[in-house]
Write a protein that binds this DNA or RNA. Structure first.
Lengths: 178, 178, 178, 178
DNA sequence: TATGAATGAGATTTCATTCAT
DNA sequence: AATGAATGAAATCTCATTCAT
C-alpha cells in the first residue's frame, strides 16, 4: 500500500502500471494479486483510508467564531489538514481522474468536509454570501497552497501557511480581521 | 480538437482512447494521424491553446484596489475567468494527471496567473501575509467553486459566484470589506 | 522514376513509403497512381530498366583470353560495369530484399551475367575449378568493391579499380599473371 | 531468437511481422515483448550475435603465405567462413536493408574482416594492387558463392568451394598458383 | 505464501490506395 | 492531368491478470 501511494501519487491512476507498484514494493505480480484483487481494488483501499482520515479530521473541526480562541483552534486544525495533504495530496488528485464509476469521488469527500465547515460557522456577520461556497473555496485554497508548498514553489513553514489561510478564512466568513 | 476537448474532459488523458476521439469527430484513425502525430500531440496542442487563452486573460487582469470601481472590474474579470474554467476546467484537471515530461504543467501556468495577480495588488494594508500565497489560494478557490458549479453541485449564477469570490479576495488582500 | 531510384536506394523497398517518393518528386499521391498502379509497379519498372541495361552490358562482354588485348578489353568492360553499379548498386541491393514473389530476382540476373562470363572464357588453363563459380565470385567482387568505392571507404579511381579487378579475374581464370 | 533468424532470413527485416516470429516460436505477442523491447531490438540482438561470431572467426584467420601449409590453413578457415554464411547469410543480407540508424552495418563489419585479411598477407609479391581492395573483393566472392550454394544454384561441396576460393585468393595475392 | 513467465485483449500507429474536386 | 484529404486494414506495442510451480 505504501508503494501504491508513492506510485499513484507520482504518475496518476491510469498511468501507473501494476508493474511499477510491484517493482517498488519488491514483490512479484503474483503476490500483488494475493492481497489485492485488482489494481482498482488497491486504489479503492487506499482511497478508503484517505477518506477515513479526512473524515476523522473533519469531525475534529472546531467551531468557527470571530474570536481569538477560535482563531487559534482553526490554525491548529489547518496545520493537521495541511499535513494530511502533504501526505496524500497527489493521491487525492489522482483520485479525481475522471470516470471511476461507482467509487465516491474526491470531490464528494471534499464536499462533505465543506459541509462540515459550513456547519461550524456559528455566527454569520455577512448575509450576502453562501457559506458553502466559501467553504468549498477555502478548502481548495488550502489544497493548492499545500501543493505549491510540497513542490517547493512556496517555502513557508506549515505554521505560517496555517496563519495566512486562517486569516483569509476568517475574513471571508466574518468580513473583517479579528 | 473539439472532439479532443470533449473526450479528454470527460475521461481524462490516459483513459481516452484515440478511438473515442475519432468516433466522436466522425473521422477515421488515419485522418487523426494526418493532423496529429500522436495522442500526446493532440493533447499538447490543446494545452497550448488553453495556456494561451489563460495568458491573454491574465494580461487583462485589472489593478486590485480597495475601491468600488476596482471591485466592479475584478468581478467582471472573474466572470471571464470562471467562463474559461467552465469551458476548459476538466481539461486542465486532466492536464494535471501525472508527470507529462517536458510539457509545462497546469500548475506552472496557474503560478504565472498568481504572480500577475500579486503584481496587481496596488495597496497592501496587511503586512502580515504573502500576497503570492493569497493569489494562489484565491485562484484555487475560483477553480474549485467553478468545478462544483459545472457539475451542478452548486447552482448559483456566474455573476453571484463572481461577487462572492471578489468579496473573499478583497477581504483577503485588504483585511476588511469595502 | 528518378525519385524512385533515389528513395529505394536510400531506404530499401519495404522501408520507402510512397509518401517519400512523391515528396521527393514534388508531385501528389494522386499523380503517382496516375502513372504507376502501385508501389510494386514502380519498383518493377525500375527493375526492368536495370535488368535491361545489365543485359545490354552482358552482350558486350568481350572474350576472355590470357592476352594483353583481351586484358585491355576486359578492363574497359569493367569500367562500364562499375559505372552501372555506381548508379544502380543500392537499388539492386534493395531488389534482393527477400520474398518479392513472381519477380525475377537480382540474383537471377547476376546469374545470367555470370553464365555469359563463363561462356566468354575461351581457354581453360586450369581444369581444377568450375568457371561458373569463378564468374559468380568475380561479379560479387566487382559489386562489393564498387559499394565501398561509392560510400567512400575506398578511394581509387574507377580505372585503377578496373585494373585490380581485371588482374584478379585473369589470375583466377588462367592461374598466372599476364 | 531462433525464430527471428528464420523469419528475418526468409522475408527480410521490414517484411517480417512480429506476428510471424511469435507464431513460429509458438509464443504470444506479450511474451515477445517480455524479452525484446521491439522488433528492432530483436534484430539488433541477432546482429550483435552475428557480429560477434564473425569477429571470433576473424581472429582465427591464419597468416596468408604462398606455401602449401598456408593454403591448407586458408581452406580450413574458408570452410568455417562458408558455414557461418550458410547459417547467417540471409540475415546479413537483410541487415543491409536500408539505413538502420546508429547500428553498425554489415558492411562495416565485413570491412573489419577485410582489414584483418589484409594484415595477414605476409608477403607481397605484387606491388601493383591494394590488398585491401583484394580482401574486400574476395570476401564478397565468398559471400556470393555461398549464397548460390545455399539456394541450390551451385551444388558443390563446401570443401570444393573452399578449394576454389582459396585458389582465387592466393592467385590474387601472389600472382601465381602455388 | 510467494513467484514470475506467459497471456491476449485492446490500445496506438502506419501507410498504400482511393476518389471527389 | 493533377490534387491531397481521407480511408481502413494491418501492423506494432502495452499491461492487467493468471496459473503452474
Amino acid at each position: 500500500m505504501t508503494a501504491g501511494v508513492a506510485v499513484f501519487s507520482a504518475r496518476g491512476f491510469r498511468a501507473t502500471r501494476v508493474d511499477d507498484i510491484v517493482k517498488r514494493a519488491r514483490i512479484s505480480h503474483g503476490t500483488f494479486y494475493l492481497y489485492f484483487s485488482s489494481k482498482d481494488d488497491l486504489f479503492e483501499q487506499l482511497v478508503a483510508e484517505v477518506a477515513s482520515e479526512l473524515s476523522s479530521l473533519t469531525d475534529s473541526l472546531p467551531a468557527i467564531r470571530p474570536t481569538t480562541e477560535s482563531r487559534a483552534d482553526l490554525e491548529l486544525w489547518l496545520v493537521s489538514f495541511i499535513e494530511l495533504y502533504s501526505k496524500y495530496g497527489p493521491l487525492i488528485r489522482s483520485w479525481t481522474e475522471a470516470e471511476r464509476g461507482g467509487m465516491s469521488t474526491a470531490e464528494d469527500v471534499l464536499g462533505t468536509v465543506a459541509d462540515a465547515l459550513t456547519a461550524k460557522v456559528k455566527i454569520r456577520k455577512r448575509k450576502d454570501f453562501d457559506p458553502r461556497i466559501a467553504s468549498l473555496a477555502l478548502l481548495a485554497m488550502v489544497e493548492r497552497v499545500n501543493y505549491f508548498s510540497v513542490t517547493g514553489q512556496v517555502d513557508e513553514e506549515v505554521e505560517q501557511l496555517a496563519r495566512t489561510l486562517a486569516d483569509i478564512m476568517l475574513d471571508a466568513f466574518f468580513g473583517a480581521q479579528i
